[in-house]
């Protein structure tokens, strides 16, 4: 499989899982991402992205039993793998290299 750097959406998904404590399922993630981005986020996109990340070995997943959630709901929890952290760092460093020296020019940096 060809080695590609993380896409923007994938980064957002991974960062959201981290913010949820390193393990999460799609529902709180969608709500959080909607709040952060101010836009509607597609649960289908999040779920598919998570499954793709799992194929790449960046997250792992487990099914949660309907009984143990107490809600009678089935959920699939995804956990961030160490390799994902390295990828995220690499992605950020790449971006920073691009940003280097341009902060003043682009006014609303960090906004």
């Amino acid at each position: 499989m060809s080695r590609r750097s993380l896409g923007e959406f994938e980064q957002q998904v991974l960062l959201t899982v981290l913010r949820m404590g390193g393990e999460a399922y799609s529902v709180p993630m969608v709500l959080h991402m909607e709040e952060r981005s101010g836009r509607e986020v597609s649960q289908a996109a999040v779920y598919i992205a998570l499954r793709r990340l799992e194929e790449k070995g960046l997250v792992s997943s487990r099914m949660e039993d309907p009984e143990s959630t107490g809600t009678g709901r089935e959920r699939r929890y995804f956990r961030v793998e160490p390799s994902a952290l390295a990828e995220l760092r690499e992605a950020r460093r790449t971006m920073e290299r691009f940003w280097d020296g341009l902060e003043d020019m682009v006014e609303d940096w960090g906004g």
């Binding site: 709500l31 649960q43 779920y47 099914m63 809600t71 089935e74 959920r75 699939r76």
Partner: peptide, 17 residues
Amino acid sequence: PDDRRVALSELAELHEA
């Protein structure tokens, strides 16, 4: 089948939220 059930179940949760 697993993924289909999970996807619909999680969407239902979102609906509640």
